[in-house]
C-alpha cells in the first residue's frame, strides 16, 4: 500500500483514483475548482439552468461502468433521435438509434444512401469492436516492449487477422484517411456526408478535409 496523490479530479483522475483506492492504496485527489468533474462537470450556468459546460457524454467504457457500479448511481438517458442534421433548405435528417428508421429518413434524400447506411453502420460496428479492444490496452513502449506488451500485441494481431481480408484492408485504408473522403466513398447526399464526417472531427482541430480523422467516425 502506498500513499498516492492524483492531480485533477476530472473523470480520468477520478477513474484512476477509484481503481487505486480499490486496490488498497491511500489516495488523495486535488482539484483546483470548487466542483469535481473537470470537463465532465454539470453546472448551473444561469439561474435554474444546468448543463455540462464542456463535454458531451462520450463513449464511457463499459468496463468502467461495470467496475464502478455506475448503472445504479447514474441514470443514463439515450435521446432518440440522437442527432438531427439540419439543412439550410429547411429539411432535417434525424439519426435515431434504430438503424432501419434512420435509413428510412435518409431515403427521403437518396435511395442509394438509404440502402448503404445499414451496411456502413454494420461495418463500423465490426471495426469498432476491434478498435475498442485497443482502448483497454496501455500502448506498448515502441523502443523496448516488455514481454507482456508483446503478448498483448500478438493478441491484437490475431484479432486483426480474424477480421477477415475485406475488413482488415478497410481498417488499414481508413485509418489514415480523411473523414470527408471516407464518407464520400459511401454516400452521395451532402448533408449525410457532413453529419457522419462531423463525428470524425469532434474536438479535433482539423476540418473534415485532411486525412487522419476517419477513425473517429466510429
Amino acid at each position: 500500500m502506498s500513499a498516492i496523490i492524483v492531480i485533477g479530479a476530472g473523470h480520468n483522475g477520478m477513474t484512476t483514483a477509484f481503481y487505486l483506492a480499490k486496490a488498497g492504496h491511500k489516495v488523495t485527489m486535488l482539484e483546483r475548482r470548487p466542483v469535481v468533474g473537470g470537463c465532465a462537470a454539470t453546472e448551473e450556468f444561469a439561474l435554474g439552468f444546468r448543463a455540462p459546460l464542456a463535454n458531451a457524454v462520450g463513449p464511457l467504457r463499459r468496463s468502467v461502468i461495470r467496475d464502478m457500479g455506475l448503472a445504479t448511481r447514474v441514470q443514463f438517458i439515450h435521446p432518440d433521435p440522437r442527432l438531427v442534421a439540419l439543412s439550410p433548405d429547411g429539411r432535417a435528417l434525424p439519426f435515431s438509434a434504430d438503424i432501419g428508421r434512420t435509413a428510412e429518413a435518409i431515403g427521403a434524400f437518396s435511395q442509394n444512401d438509404a440502402r448503404r447506411y445499414p451496411e456502413f453502420c454494420e461495418t463500423l460496428r465490426r471495426l469498432g469492436v476491434f478498435l475498442s479492444g485497443l482502448f483497454d490496452l496501455t500502448p506498448p513502449s515502441i523502443d523496448a516492449p516488455a514481454a507482456g506488451e508483446m503478448w498483448e500485441m500478438l493478441k491484437v494481431g490475431k484479432r486483426f487477422r480474424a477480421l477477415g481480408r475485406t475488413d482488415s484492408f478497410r481498417l488499414l485504408r481508413w485509418g489514415p484517411m480523411a473523414a470527408a473522403d471516407l464518407v464520400s466513398e459511401w454516400f452521395e447526399t451532402d448533408l449525410l456526408q457532413a453529419a457522419v464526417a462531423s463525428r470524425g472531427v469532434f474536438g479535433r482541430r482539423w476540418a473534415p478535409g485532411p486525412p487522419g480523422v476517419a477513425p473517429c467516425c466510429s
Binding site: R165, R170, L172, R173, M177
Partner: peptide, 14 residues
C-alpha cells in the same frame, strides 16, 4: 502519394 494509397494498398488493397 497518401498513406491509404501506399505500400500494400497501392493501387488497390490486396
Amino acid at each position: 502519394l497518401t498513406l491509404e494509397q501506399l505500400f500494400f494498398l497501392r493501387p488497390a488493397p490486396g
